[in-house]
Amino acid sequence: MGKVRVPVARIWEKFYPVFFALLAAATAWHLDLVFEDTKVTNQLSSTINVSAILMGFLGTAKAMLLSFNSRQYQAIRANKYLWSMLLSYFSQAMLAALSLCIFSLVLFSVDPSKYKGWNVGPYWSIGPVHVSEALLPIWIGLSTFAFLAFFRILRVIFGLLKAS
């Protein structure tokens, strides 16, 4: 049986949210970004609201997707590889928004300054990493991933709507 060749554009489409999320988190880490005490509650509260709205939109978009009946949609649904990839895009976007919401809710509920003595992560040449130093890079990575996964779904949905 022949090997299935996947175009580079499809590979890029599949992994660019993860790539840019890791890049954003690494950049935030490199720049030593931390939450600003006076703005963190508003920032996290807004993030919880936006991620909940994203989850609601994604649920509605998935219901719309299941109701499409165009030829292009039927061809995608008949192709098991494309259909499973499309469903994985939805699940990634939903889980990213849910993870961002839960992470923001935990940060909103806990005072990270009380855990400055907690060391996590690598102990090689840079020394111990404190919990409070890792929170904003993780939040930025999750936010970037959730936004780009949502954007990818928007592009697919609007492409299907345009084609029908």
Results as ranks from 00 to 15, higher is better:
residue 131 V to S: 02
residue 158 F to S: 05
residue 62 K to R: 15
residue 117 G to T: 05
residue 19 F to P: 08
residue 89 Y to E: 08
residue 65 L to N: 01
residue 113 S to T: 11
residue 160 L to Q: 02
residue 76 I to H: 11
residue 63 A to I: 08
residue 30 H to F: 15
residue 153 I to A: 11
residue 74 Q to Y: 00
residue 67 S to E: 07
residue 83 W to G: 04
residue 83 W to P: 06
residue 10 R to E: 15
residue 140 I to V: 12
residue 42 N to M: 07
residue 15 F to C: 05
residue 72 Q to D: 09
residue 20 F to W: 08
residue 1 M to C: 08
residue 88 S to D: 04
residue 164 S to D: 10
residue 23 L to A: 11
residue 71 R to A: 13
residue 161 L to S: 02
residue 114 K to T: 04
residue 143 S to T: 02
residue 73 Y to S: 13
residue 136 L to K: 10
residue 109 S to W: 01
residue 20 F to K: 02
residue 70 S to F: 05
residue 153 I to T: 07
residue 120 V to D: 08
residue 133 E to C: 00
residue 11 I to M: 12
residue 89 Y to N: 13
residue 161 L to P: 01
residue 16 Y to N: 10
residue 96 A to F: 10
residue 5 R to Y: 07
residue 66 L to Y: 09
residue 32 D to G: 04
residue 134 A to C: 12
residue 83 W to H: 14
residue 157 I to L: 12
residue 131 V to I: 11
residue 4 V to H: 06
residue 43 Q to Y: 12
residue 97 A to R: 06
residue 92 Q to L: 09
residue 144 T to W: 01
residue 102 I to M: 09
residue 157 I to G: 02
residue 20 F to G: 08
residue 66 L to I: 04
residue 14 K to H: 13
residue 127 G to D: 02
residue 82 L to P: 09
residue 118 W to V: 15
residue 115 Y to G: 07
residue 141 G to M: 08
residue 130 H to I: 06
residue 148 L to F: 04
residue 14 K to Y: 12
residue 101 C to E: 08
residue 5 R to K: 11
residue 100 L to N: 03
residue 139 W to S: 07
residue 71 R to C: 07
residue 90 F to Y: 14
residue 143 S to C: 12
residue 93 A to Y: 00
residue 9 A to G: 06
residue 44 L to V: 14
residue 107 L to F: 03
residue 116 K to N: 04
residue 31 L to Q: 11
residue 2 G to M: 14
residue 86 L to H: 05
residue 61 A to T: 00
residue 103 F to Y: 13
residue 22 L to C: 12
residue 89 Y to D: 10
residue 37 D to Y: 06
residue 137 P to Y: 09
